[in-house]
Write a protein that binds this DNA or RNA. Structure first.
Length: 481
DNA sequence: CGCTTTTGCCGTATGGCAAAAGCGGTGCCATACT
C-alpha cells in the first residue's frame, strides 16, 4: 500500500517540490491504485510528473507512447538532467544494431519512449512482453482522435497492444479534450471504466480576440501593425506553407523584427535550428503551420495570431494555449476574412482516399506500389493492420463528416455574438457561468488600441526605459550622498 | 470547395477568351536505391 506520505516524500526527494498542481495528486493516486486513468490537465502544469513520480514507486518498466521523436528526445534529456539514466527513446534515429541491443536489455530501463508505429512492430512487442510493464502512458492522447483515422492509423491499434502487454495501469494524458474526444480516447484504448481527472481549460490571462477583415490586404496591414506594436515574442499560425514564407518575408523586409518561418517541408535540421532560436529568445515572431507547437514549452509567448481559420476548436485552443504560460497577460487574435473557410473546407478531404480509390486499391494494391501521398500510405497501412475495405470506407467517410461538423463549430465561434470565453468553456462541457465576462477577456478589436488595455503594448526605445533608468540611478545617487 | 494561375487556341499581331490545372496541413516507419 502506497500512502500519501510516501507520495509526498517522493515528490520532495526526486523532484524537489512540496506541493502538487491541480489534478496531479488525483492522477498519481489513481495510477498507483492500478486504475486506468484519463487525465485532462492544462499545458505547462506538469503532465509528465503524473507518470514520472509513479515510476519511482512501482519499480519496473513504464512505456510512454509519444507522437513525435522530438518530444521523446526532450523527455529523455529532461530525465537525464534530473539524474535519471534509465530512460531511452526507441525510434528511427537509432542504428538497427543499437536498437537490437536496447530491445535485448529492455527491462533495465524504467522509462521507454516510442511512437505508436514503433510499438506495433512484432519484435518490439516481443521484447516488451519479456518485461514487467507497470504503466502504459499515452502522451498527447488527443492524437488518437485527431490523427488516428486519416493520418496515423497505428493510433487505432493501441488497444490491441495494451492487451498484449498487460500493463498494471494505463494512463492517457492530454490538455484539450471535450466530452466527445474523451469518449473517443477511452473507447479506442479500451478503457471505458477509467477514472477521469479533468481540470478547467480556461486560461484567464489570455485575451481571446476575433477581427474580421474585408480582404487579405487589410489583414496584412493589421497584422503588421500588431506585431510591430505588441510585446513579443509571438506565433502566427497559417494553414498554408507558402503563406508562412510570404508573410515572414514581408515582415523581415518591412520591420526591424527578427522573423522566421516553420513548416513540415523544411529539413529536420532547419526545423531544429529555428525551434532552438525561438526557444532561446532570438526570434520575435515565428510564422508557422500547425507543424510547430507540440512540446513548445516557452513560458513568455505574449501572443498567438491566427492568420487562417483553425480546423477546429481543439486545435484553436491547443495553439492559443501556447501563449502566456508564465501567467502574465497574453492575447490570441484570429484574423478572418469571408474567404477563409474555403481553405479549411478543402483541407477536410485533402489527402483522404475516395471510395473509388479504396475499391481499386483493395482489388489490386500492386497497381499503387510506387504511389506517394497520404492516401496511399494510409491505405497500405490499413491493409497491413488487417482492416477490410468496407470498414476503411466507413471510417474515412465518418471522419470527414466529423471534420465538417467541427469546422461548422469553428465558424460558430468566429461569428459569435457573446462571450468567446464562455463559448469555449461550454464547448469543453464546463459551466459557462464560471466566467465573468468583461472587456479584458475577449472582444473584436479592429485597431491595436486593445494592446494598451491589456498592458501588452511594446515599450518603445525612445520613451520609457532610458528615463526610467536615469531616475533609478538618480535615486541611488541621492541615497548615497 | 472556389479562387487564382496557366494553358490552349486562333493564326502571324499582339492579345483575348475559355477551359483546365493548381492550390491547400499534421509524422512515424522501412526499404530500396544511389
Amino acid at each position: 500500500m502506497i500512502t500519501d506520505e510516501l507520495i509526498y516524500k517522493t515528490l520532495k526527494d526526486r523532484f524537489g517540490y512540496d506541493t502538487f498542481k491541480p489534478g496531479q495528486l488525483a492522477v498519481i493516486r489513481s495510477v498507483l491504485a492500478g486504475q486506468a486513468t484519463l487525465a485532462v490537465l492544462p499545458t505547462g502544469t506538469g503532465k509528465s510528473l503524473c507518470y514520472q513520480l509513479p515510476v519511482y514507486l512501482l519499480g519496473h518498466t513504464t512505456v510512454i507512447v509519444s507522437p513525435l521523436i522530438a518530444l521523446m528526445q526532450d523527455q529523455v534529456a529532461q530525465l537525464n538532467y534530473q539524474g535519471e539514466k534509465r530512460a531511452v527513446a526507441i525510434n528511427s534515429s537509432l542504428e538497427p544494431r543499437q536498437k537490437q541491443l536496447i530491445l535485448g536489455q529492455l527491462s533495465q530501463y524504467r522509462f521507454v519512449f516510442m511512437a505508436p508505429e514503433t510499438i506495433s512492430q512484432p519484435t518490439v512487442i516481443q521484447a516488451l512482453q519479456q518485461c514487467q510493464i507497470d504503466l502504459l502512458v499515452i502522451d498527447e492522447a488527443h492524437c488518437i482522435s485527431q490523427w488516428g483515422i486519416d493520418f496515423r492509423p497505428d493510433y487505432l491499434v493501441l488497444a490491441t497492444i495494451k492487451r498484449q502487454l498487460k500493463p498494471r495501469a494505463t494512463l492517457a494524458l492530454t490538455a484539450t479534450a471535450n466530452a466527445q474526444v474523451r469518449h473517443d480516447i477511452l473507447t479506442k484504448l479500451d478503457m471505458q471504466s477509467a477514472n477521469s481527472v479533468i481540470t478547467s481549460v480556461d486560461r484567464p490571462n489570455i485575451y481571446l480576440g476575433v477581427s474580421q477583415q474585408v480582404d487579405e490586404a487589410s489583414k496584412n496591414r493589421f497584422l503588421k501593425q500588431l506585431v510591430m506594436e505588441s510585446q513579443g515574442p509571438g506565433i502566427i499560425y497559417f494553414s498554408s506553407r507558402q503563406k508562412t514564407v510570404e508573410i515572414a518575408t514581408l515582415l523581415q523586409e518591412t520591420t526591424t523584427l527578427k522573423v522566421a518561418y516553420y513548416h513540415a517541408a523544411l529539413s529536420t535540421k532547419e526545423r531544429f535550428t529555428i525551434q532552438q532560436q525561438f526557444m532561446q529568445g532570438h526570434l520575435d515572431v515565428i510564422c508557422a503551420t500547425n507543424a510547430f507547437g507540440m512540446g513548445i514549452n516557452k513560458a513568455d509567448i505574449r501572443y498567438v495570431i491566427h492568420y487562417h481559420l483553425p480546423q477546429n476548436i481543439e486545435s484553436y485552443l491547443q495553439e492559443v494555449g501556447r501563449a502566456g504560460r508564465d501567467g502574465k497577460p497574453a492575447y490570441a487574435l484570429l484574423l478572418a476574412t469571408a474567404q477563409d473557410m474555403y481553405l479549411q473546407q478543402a483541407l477536410i478531404s485533402f489527402g483522404i482516399p475516395e471510395v473509388g480509390l479504396i475499391q481499386r486499391f483493395y482489388q489490386d494494391p500492386n497497381l499503387f506500389k510506387g504511389s506517394q501521398g497520404n492516401e496511399f500510405e494510409l491505405l497500405r497501412r490499413y491493409q497491413q493492420i488487417g482492416m477490410e475495405e468496407q470498414a476503411v470506407s466507413e471510417l474515412l467517410k465518418n471522419r470527414q463528416k466529423e471534420k465538417q461538423f467541427a469546422l461548422q463549430t469553428m465558424l460558430d465561434f468566429l461569428n459569435l455574438h457573446g462571450c468567446r470565453r464562455q463559448f469555449i468553456v461550454n464547448y469543453f462541457d464546463e459551466d459557462p457561468r464560471q466566467i465573468e465576462h468583461d472587456d479584458q477577456c475577449c472582444g473584436e478589436p479592429n485597431s491595436t488600441a486593445f494592446l494598451e488595455k491589456l498592458n501588452l503594448k511594446k515599450i518603445t526605445n525612445d520613451k520609457a526605459p532610458k528615463t526610467a533608468g536615469l531616475d533609478h540611478w538618480n535615486g541611488i545617487l541621492k541615497q548615497l550622498f
